[in-house]
Design a protein around this nucleic acid. Structure first.
Lengths: 353, 353
DNA sequence: CATCACGGTGGGAGCGCTCCCACCGTACCG
DNA sequence: CGGTACGGTGGGAGCGCTCCCACCGTGATG
């Protein structure tokens, strides 16, 4: 007759204590071996490792977290209200990168959905309740209070994309300036004379940098920046349509368009087609993001690729670094380490230009 | 001069004990209030709640997990080696659904990447080490040992898609049979006479069911299933190309194609175009999945939509149910509850048919 | 008026681990 | 040859919570 275990499922797992007994050593020694302390003799270490293997011992996360005040978990905070965030491959790729960086460690990834303002406040509380060792914040809005809230709570955090030129928090960004510049340089090289620009919302730092890159490329090519050739979009397809219609009305002679996102480029394409302009013969079109849309558009869309998976990877590394430093009582922020990363973008040339 | 806290960041958070003292009650009573036990008088409850609010108390997850042997977290196991999994919106949508279902609860979502076979084994260990209360398994292969491993460990699990007709584990599937049938019915209604089928790998249960649905629709329309009009693909674009070329060689008179996935439909489209067939005038094309590709293909692709987000939601509900039942010492598996869900699919008609 | 039942409550024990202090022995020093 | 240093080790204390048992008071019961 099977004896019923006190509680829980599938029988109790072995504890540190049991491993210690089996190896004929003390609890502290086993703990030292498990945690890779150098202060253990080789003989003892081998003994303990054998016992661990025999018993199939796995440390209890909860107990460790409670005793050591460290969870070996980080959270990726997802701004859920934005469906856009899910629709674009951005999300998947970021997670892919995070997963890769985490694979080399014992750290777990927690997904947290931050909805409205109250939920964000609740989230902040939870973060304070030692649920995770650090936080990855993606797709942060300019005026979002969350990053600073998290920072004040003393929770290590890394954000994707700087919110401004003088970002204080550790961050990983892609080279928006270089990306915008490369797109326009490409159009110039292709012999395009009248290049129109559809920008993203300019209060978003990344969108503004893209635009500044475009302007720099134009200037380098000896062309004056023409306000008639610039229209602001809002990263939506509809916004791209509106901007394109506007530009076409003002300057029917344009022969190239750079849109600050693929989605806006998609909207622009529809307007161009309706106006009877052929792509790329009459008008060259370049987008930004190198999203799925770009590869499946007709014609396929030239676009600027951001290394999103790599951003996820670097964000994670930065965060793990910060966590390690803080637990060693010397925040990386105080060691003058580089905590702002900017990764290169790449122009992917396809049929639309 | 600020007194340095013993350890950890940002000062200690209030504990149950402190709340108890503040409220002038015992520790047990506070615990009861926090956990919503009915065995507390209204007066006392109000007292405790006030103290909780004043102190901004949040229970320590680790301590609770240790004491109660329950983590209030579930894991979504992601089969990482498949890049396909990330590329398709499947992943994002599943997570979206899971997030929605979890939003109503206090349960956290852990993302676990299961790479090769050893990593899966390691994963199984961790699952046993009370890291999570349950597991969501997505995109499970036919011969994958993981589901049974998890089950043997006694960890509640729900899988997406049945592995066979007599799936034992709780699962949420979409109506692949109905989806395949609807696609072919649609082609029949459109007056197509010679309907070719590109199947997925038939050892994948879902793919086989789709195919069986197709055959059922053909039979219902009084058409014999013609082996010449069936070719097997492997869910890749290249596989779709090969299958389409084969079909076209065998039956140049075909006027409709159903592909078991949008990606294969994409491959088929290229071959059809090269062969000078117009879509939909000469050949109607229908895909499956209603992925981003479908919306951006030229012409836009008619496709069968699976309610993926809803599947994520239902999987989560099923899992939370199972967890609740088990902790109440009566597994849902023993109560004869329905643990296999099949959700309806929907045909989205676009320009390709 | 003693007895019982029961809603309501306090607090001990213990979950499995890390941290840290005490201690042991050996090697090296003056 | 006593003193000091130090690598190596054992185990007590405690992390913050839940569980459960003992207990208290009240009102119904015999």
């Amino acid at each position: 007759m099977a004896v019923r275990e006190p509680r829980g499922r599938g029988g109790r797992r072995p504890t540190l204590e049991q491993v210690a007994e089996r190896a004929g050593v003390g609890r502290g020694t086993v703990s030292r071996v498990i945690n890779g302390s150098p202060r253990v003799s080789d003989r003892t270490r081998a003994l303990v490792e054998a016992a661990v293997a025999e018993l199939g011992y796995v440390p209890n996360t909860a107990a460790r977290a409670l005793a050591a005040d460290r969870t070996d978990a980080i959270a990726l905070v997802v701004p859920e209200p934005e469906r856009r965030f899910f629709a674009e491959p951005y999300f998947s790729e970021i997670i892919q990168g995070v997963g890769q960086a985490l694979a080399e460690t014992e750290v777990q990834l927690l997904l947290t959905f931050a909805g409205g303002h109250k939920e964000r406040r609740r989230l902040a509380q939870y973060l304070g309740a030692q649920r995770v060792d650090g936080v990855l914040l993606v797709s942060v809005h300019a005026g979002d209070p969350l990053p600073d809230l998290v920072d004040q709570l003393g929770v290590p955090a890394v954000i994707s994309g700087r919110r401004s030129a003088d970002e204080r928090l550790p961050s990983v960004d892609s080279d928006n300036f270089g990306g915008g510049r490369a797109a326009v340089e490409h159009l110039v090289e292709r012999g395009r004379r009248t290049i129109a620009l559809i920008t993203g919302p300019l209060d978003v730092y990344g969108a503004r940098r893209r635009h500044e890159g475009c302007l720099a490329a134009l200037e380098a090519a000896g062309r004056a920046a023409d306000p008639e050739l610039v229209a602001a979009g809002d990263f939506t397809e509809e916004g791209g349509r509106r901007a394109m219609a506007e530009l076409l009305a003002r300057r029917p002679d344009l022969d190239a368009v750079f849109a600050g996102s693929d989605v806006m480029a998609g909207g622009a394409r529809l307007v161009l087609r309706e106006a009877g302009r052929r792509i790329p013969q009459d008008v060259a079109l370049v987008g930004y993001d190198d999203s799925v849309i770009a590869r499946h558009m007709e014609p396929t869309l030239t676009s600027v690729r951001q290394p999103i998976a790599e951003m996820g990877r670097e964000m994670t590394r930065l965060l793990l670094d910060e966590i390690a430093h803080r637990s060693a009582d010397r925040p990386a922020s105080a060691t003058g380490e580089r905590r702002q990363l900017v990764l290169a973008t790449e122009l992917v040339v396809r049929d639309s230009s």
